[in-house]
């Protein structure tokens, strides 16, 4: 029999108030083992207070080849930024 342990992506919250951040990946037979392994691999020095594990195959990623059509349209929309708008200097805190 030959069935490899699947790959899991590991997200760790380093302290409350911060978001979970991608830390890396590892192999494990199931989610529970992925959690246990993530604890040993990624939080040996108090790096985290919470761990998420997601099997890698469940992540859908954008393709860098499509970066142009995906992200370039945002570049010419300066009106989405506050500095686009001209206001008199007298207006404070806006």
């Amino acid at each position: 029999m030959k069935k490899n342990w699947p790959l899991w992506e590991i997200f760790v919250r380093s302290k409350n108030g911060l978001e979970h951040r991608h830390f890396g990946s590892l192999h494990a037979a199931d989610a529970e083992m992925a959690l246990e392994n993530a604890r040993d691999v990624y939080t040996r020095r108090n790096e985290g207070v919470s761990i998420w594990v997601v099997e890698s195959k469940h992540i859908t990623a954008s393709n860098p080849e499509n970066n142009g059509e995906l992200f370039e349209p945002a570049q010419d929309k300066v009106y989405r930024h506050p500095t686009f708008y001209d206001l008199p200097d007298e207006v404070k805190h806006m």
């Binding site: 490899n4 790959l7 890396g24 990946s25 590892l26 192999h27 040993d40 691999v41 040996r44």
Partner: peptide, 22 residues
């Protein structure tokens, strides 16, 4: 134990290039 961990970080990084752990 750190060395085992370092091996794992590096194997994972390597696997992102499309080669399997096996």
């Amino acid at each position: 134990q750190d060395e085992a961990g370092h091996g794992l970080y590096l194997y994972s990084a390597c696997e992102t290039l499309g080669i399997s752990r096996d």
